[in-house]
């Protein structure tokens, strides 16, 4: 439960939701930061004062974000600002690093993702992930897509799932005749769409994409961006990108992260500077650091 008693402050979460009672929900208009209105039921993630540590080292601090359903939210910022780290904390991929830990709260549809009862495996089945470098398994195309459902124990109807997922990922027409061939021989763009199909096959609600186009050529990138626009109808998408134009093109909302360097230890800690709708962030940012970054004066 987060209470903002003084609405005159810049709302750190970029948008706000208010509830007078359970049934009747309206969205407050913040005077300083224009925010969209949306019903509370569309709230997917709610991060409050989220910090991620690696051992004693704080990689990112004080992230406050509300993320809306069936939108594309972009995370941008200079390298080392912790945007990927934040993304990975959304489906607990950071758990794989033994020293990583999270402070603050991160609610997914109202449930604390870091509650000790929560199984990260279950989280990742609902919140899928696409990685920076295409990472097809050294198996057939079919087995790649069917991987998620299979580990979830599904044995029947895999053919339909594979076809459906590949169609969703705009890959079906290219590969339908060679489903049993190895995925390793595909082009980079195809491999990345396969990764998306693989993520979709687990029937997630959210897709996290960690710089999905950074290893691709411009044509393949354009196809992925097109695909994201289509997928938005069904999935909530968070994308980390180093490419500001990409964020401007595809996202509804953008979070700008910056990095502060501790002079004495030379350690870099990332922080969320500004989070608002994409159009505003790129045309009329509130924060000077954001402006410097998007106009190319920094980073």
């Amino acid at each position: 439960m987060v209470n903002l008693t003084d609405a005159e402050d810049v709302n750190p979460k970029g948008l706000s939701v208010s509830a007078e009672n359970d049934a009747d929900i309206t969205v407050e208009q913040n005077t300083d930061t224009p925010v969209d209105e949306f019903p509370a039921e569309d709230l997917v993630f709610d991060a409050s004062d989220l910090s991620v540590y690696y051992g004693d080292f704080r990689a990112v601090r004080d992230v406050n974000m509300l993320i809306k359903r069936k939108e594309i939210t972009a995370l941008i910022g200079p390298s080392g600002c912790g945007k990927s780290t934040v993304l990975r904390s959304f489906n607990r991929m950071n758990d794989l690093i033994p020293t990583a830990r999270v402070e603050g709260t991160l609610l997914y549809r109202g449930v604390d993702l870091y509650d000790e009862r929560v199984d990260p495996v279950e989280v990742r089945r609902r919140i899928g992930m696409v990685f920076q470098k295409p990472n097809p398994f050294p198996k057939s195309i079919y087995d790649n897509v069917a991987y998620g459902p299979r580990v979830a124990g599904r044995k029947k109807g895999l053919d339909d799932v594979v076809e459906h997922s590949l169609k969703k990922a705009a890959l079906w027409d290219e590969v339908k005749d060679r489903l049993q061939e190895s995925a390793i021989g595909m082009s980079g763009g195809q491999q990345q769409r396969l990764s998306i199909a693989r993520a979709i096959a687990s029937d997630p609600e959210v897709l996290l994409m960690d710089e999905p186009c950074s290893a691709l050529d411009p044509i393949a990138t354009a196809r992925i961006e097109e695909l994201m626009a289509e997928l938005k109808d069904e999935y909530t998408i968070l994308i980390v990108t180093h490419n500001m134009q990409q964020a401007a093109r595809v996202s509804d909302r953008t979070a700008f992260f910056s990095v502060e360097v501790d002079e004495t230890s030379d350690r870099r800690t990332g922080l969320l500077v500004e989070y608002t709708n994409t159009e505003k962030l790129f045309s009329n940012p509130d924060d000077e650091r954001t402006e410097n970054y998007i106009t190319g004066r920094f980073g």
């Binding site: 089945r125 990685f131 398994f137 580990v151 687990s202």
Partner: peptide, 22 residues
């Protein structure tokens, strides 16, 4: 390669799934 492990964990594989299948 850790990318294989990550890919598998990313679609909700358990540790044993990752060991067994990757």
């Amino acid at each position: 390669p850790s990318s294989l492990r990550q890919g598998a964990y990313g679609v909700g594989a358990t540790k044993w799934d990752v060991i067994r299948t990757q």
